[in-house]
């Protein structure tokens, strides 16, 4: 009787040692380096810095998401970004927040230059320094750097900034996915 108890104890001790060793090894072997989740989220955001999410930029929104905010507040990113965020965070993908008007086509700001008075308001509003100009000198938008956030539109006292939709050119044109050409449903 006593020997059975001893055997049992010995067996469990050995098992404990083996598994403990394995777990310890695994902890070293498969160690996960820090958790730069905010950076990972930030990398998925479109970096328009438009503030439509209610935060002053993409990074702050990334921090907010990491702290538990919803992932569906980014209209420039649209469904694709929500999907990627959902995959990254293991959360459920939701449709874009109702507070937002939905996905807009890509656009850039354009200053009607003969109406510009050189007030520099738009320059101060631009989150990515995509507008150049000086006080009382005409301003203009560097189209390639403009993220289309439209933060410059409201501050303009002359209302001379338009958001222009980008038209595809031969260079930016993309193929469309085939439409499934299943015959029309039969009336039976």
């Amino acid at each position: 009787m006593a020997s059975v108890v001893i055997y049992a104890i010995v067996a469990f001790v050995i098992l404990g040692l083996i598994f403990g060793g394995l777990l310890g090894y695994a902890a070293i072997r498969f160690k996960v380096e820090g958790d730069p989740i905010v950076d990972q989220i930030d990398a998925l955001l479109p970096q328009t810095q438009c503030g439509q999410c209610g935060y002053p930029g993409c990074k702050p929104y990334a921090k907010a998401i990491a702290d538990g905010d919803e992932i569906n507040k980014c209209p420039p990113g649209g469904e694709a970004t929500i999907q990627e965020l959902a995959n990254l965070l293991g959360r459920e993908a939701k449709p874009l927040d109702d507070a937002h008007e939905g996905e807009k086509p890509k656009q850039v700001a354009f200053i009607r230059e003969d109406e510009c008075i050189g007030c520099t308001k738009c320059i101060q509003a631009c989150p990515v320094d995509a507008i150049v100009g000086a006080a009382k000198k005409m301003h203009t938008v560097i189209a390639d750097e403009c993220t289309g956030c439209d933060l410059c539109v409201d501050p303009c006292p002359e209302d001379c900034i338009d958001m222009i939709q980008l038209q595809p050119t031969v260079d930016t044109w993309t193929w469309k996915a085939p439409e499934r050409t299943i015959p029309v449903k039969e009336v039976s």
């Binding site: 008075i117 520099t120 320059i123 150049v132 100009g133 000086a134 006080a135 000198k137 005409m138």
Partner: peptide, 28 residues
Amino acid sequence: ARAKAKKAAKQAKSSNDGSATPSATDKA
């Protein structure tokens, strides 16, 4: 702006290059 709208526009046209940098405007 109200006072010098016309003048500003003219100036704007002539200084098309916009050589000023954003940092210059920040000083403003």
